[in-house]
Simulated scan of single mutants.
Amino acid sequence: MLRTLGLFAFAVCVNAPTQAAASSKEEIKIGQTLPYSGPLSGFGVIGRAQEAYFAKLNADGGINGRKIKFISLDDAYSPPKTVEQTRKLVEQDEVLMMFGTLGTATNNAVHRYLNSKKIPQLFVLSGATKWADPKSFPWTMPGMAAYESEGVVYAKHILKTKPDAKIAILAQNDDLGKDYVAGFKRALGDKAAKMIVSEATYETSAPTISSQLATLKTSGANVLFGAVVGKFSSQMIKGVAEIGWKPDLMFVPTSASSITFLEPAGLDNATGLITSSYQKDINDAQWANDEDVKAYFAFMKESLPSADPRNTNYATGFLNAHLITHILKACGDDVSRENILRQATSMKNVKLPLLLAGVTVNTAKDDYLSFQQLRLRRFNGKNWEGFGELLDDQ
């Protein structure tokens, strides 16, 4: 075993990419893994939107004279596959950075490796608190609001609108679920013990969550907080309706709010569902004449004409592609890993297409959280409607 590990370490050292190989005067290589197959394959369109965005960018001359070579590989939301594909991107394709890889468990499988090689792992599509740890993992940065922040916002809403609530919690049994629940309980404070009447978890490998929902219903809870993603979002929404449970309030994470996950559950069943966001909902009528939203739909029509532009995961890809483009433009002629990290950790009041009014991106060497402001949204049976003011986790 020790001999095997020694050979592995030697191979990594030999195959380590050079800065010159990862970028040149003509090209910048960006790597990514996403679930194009498997239980969370609905998120794969994020990469498709970014691929189309970079293609359009290249057609217009690229960034500071360099073209983007974007290599996005399927990891099926499987950590071992993420390790395999990431090593391929780093050691064979010799990418300059990793960008927008999705998932807590998947990114957890590679972030020590990437940090040890000082390769930027930027704008991870996971809100786990661990991605904002500049002291221990300076080369890794989150690309969405922290799960704990979302949990705090939902708890604040319950305390304000239904202080006598009986709350049931269903959470994915991993860092994602634990972070959501930690923020949620932190905001409830000493009221958590009385208000939370039942909790259940599920494994991502589980075929269904039917038994958990049945157990939670028997608790008499009238509020359901679901820290669920992917197919489990659909299962929760549909499952609650099928067992005749009608919680007064039901919450899901921002990442579970795509129409892709609501339609299989039945849009009627999703009516009244609450989530949050820091970006404009492209399907909300209030933004129909917004310049950012019109630009997004124009992009989709031109670059991905056969795709469903209503799918908000495309909008996520579009937004984050602008974010990484901002960083690379700010690098000027110095497209080194060190300068990329320097620019990513010194953003000041950066405005991006599709962000809600008042929301800007701010980072610092000791603060890696890109998005820290949220607004609640409620599903009306057709689309999401924002309500209330911008909130944070303080």
Rank of each mutant, 00 (worst) to 15 (best):
A11G: 09
S24N: 11
I28L: 15
K29R: 14
T33W: 00
P35Q: 04
S37G: 12
S37V: 14
V45W: 02
A49S: 07
K56A: 13
A59H: 00
G62H: 06
R66L: 10
K67H: 14
K69N: 11
D74C: 00
E84R: 05
Q85H: 09
R87T: 10
V90P: 02
E91V: 00
E91K: 04
M98V: 00
T101F: 01
G103C: 07
G103K: 02
N108S: 09
V110L: 04
Y113T: 07
Y113K: 07
S116A: 15
K117Q: 14
I119S: 05
S126G: 03
K130Q: 14
D133E: 11
T140S: 02
M141W: 05
S149E: 08
A155D: 08
L159G: 07
K160Y: 09
P163C: 03
A168E: 12
Q172N: 14
D175Y: 05
K178M: 10
V181Y: 02
V181M: 05
R186Q: 15
L188M: 11
G189K: 06
D190A: 00
A192H: 04
V197T: 13
E199F: 02
E199M: 07
S205G: 03
T208R: 03
T208G: 01
T215M: 08
G220L: 08
L224D: 05
L224W: 00
K238P: 00
A241K: 12
G244S: 11
P247R: 10
P253Q: 11
D268L: 11
A270L: 00
Q279M: 12
Q286K: 15
Q286L: 14
A288Q: 13
N289D: 14
E291I: 13
V293A: 05
K294L: 06
F297P: 08
S306F: 10
P309M: 07
T316L: 15
G317Y: 04
F318Y: 14
H322T: 08
L323V: 09
T325W: 06
H326K: 14
L328Y: 04
R337E: 01
I340H: 03
Q343H: 11
L355W: 01
S370Q: 10
Q372P: 07
R375W: 11
L376K: 11
R378D: 09
K382W: 02
K382Q: 13
W384A: 07
E385F: 04
F387E: 11
D393K: 12
Q394H: 07
